[in-house]
Simulated scan of single mutants.
Amino acid sequence: MADPTFEEIAAGLYSGPPGAFVSSRKARAGEVDAEVAARILALRKPSIAAWVVNVFAQERAGRLGAALDLARELREAQEDLDAPALAKLGRERRVLTRKLAQAAGELAASRGERVTPSTLEAVEGSISAAFFDPAAAAAVASGRLVRTIDPSATMSDIRDAVAGDVPELEPVAQPPVDELQARRARRDAERAVATAEKAQASVERELTTRDKALRELRARKGELAERTAELENELARVRAELSRAEHDLPEAEQSREDAAARAEAAADALDLARKAKDAL
């Protein structure tokens, strides 16, 4: 059986009981050759938050691996500028990060360690960093964190936060070109369908508006046609009355002239009668 590597020894120490770190470090150094022993004795004691992450990385590697798979998908969505996928993965990332941090805190508590809200926040920050940076993901998965990693950490920060070398990420097998093209084609097709659905919905709303306007215009046309018929009937009646008035007017004018002449004659007769009376 091969001797454990420095990284394996370090991982064991960084996931062991925090209170026994110094004594365990000394004991492990006494079991290896001088060169490795010197490196072991130089190991710094991890912070409680880093220890929580280390324990989780080693004992819940499957759950952490699922989170890192999601991280790769998130970065791919960012590279492709796929907004719908980006929003969906972002929501999943926040939910999963919170759940993983809570699970890590519960695992640490089961080992008798008190996990404060600030510790849990630092644990969540390290897991979140793993979603944004492949190097941070590798550092978290190593189980050898000396201190936690902030999402804004630089490569230098990440190297300094890990005992030993920062492990290289295993190369992710790239799908065949045809598969990549098919995936992009599907996304393009989905976007085209979404655009077409929006356009259809817009046109249908416009059609509904046009139908309503047409119904209202037809109803108005009917009302105006009825009103026109009423006015035409009224106009015909008035024209008939006008015709009758024009027909009767000459006779009425002549009758008036005759009456005026008779009135004038009667006035003359009355005047003569008065004068005759006065002469008596």
Rank of each mutant, 00 (worst) to 15 (best):
R186H: 01
R239M: 09
A196S: 12
D80R: 15
A57E: 00
A10D: 00
A10V: 10
A129D: 01
A49W: 00
T208C: 05
A108S: 09
I9H: 04
D150R: 14
P167K: 08
A71T: 02
V203C: 00
M155G: 15
E106T: 10
G65Y: 03
D3S: 15
P4K: 13
V22R: 13
V193F: 08
R63V: 01
E170Q: 14
L96H: 03
R114Y: 05
A189C: 00
R111I: 02
S126V: 06
D271G: 12
V177L: 15
S110N: 10
S152P: 01
D150K: 11
L68Q: 07
E35A: 10
T209K: 12
L70Q: 12
R262M: 03
L235R: 15
A259V: 06
R205T: 11
G222W: 01
E79K: 08
D165Q: 14
T195P: 00
A27L: 12
F21S: 05
V36L: 03
L272M: 10
S15G: 15
E204R: 11
L41W: 02
E230Y: 12
L242E: 05
L81T: 06
G112S: 09
E121D: 08
V36R: 03
A173L: 12
R184W: 03
I40K: 03
A182G: 07
R237H: 07
A240E: 15
E7K: 10
Q174C: 05
A266N: 08
A240Q: 12
E79F: 07
E76F: 00
K26P: 00
P18V: 13
A182E: 13
A261H: 07
R144S: 09
A276E: 11
E223D: 06
S23I: 14
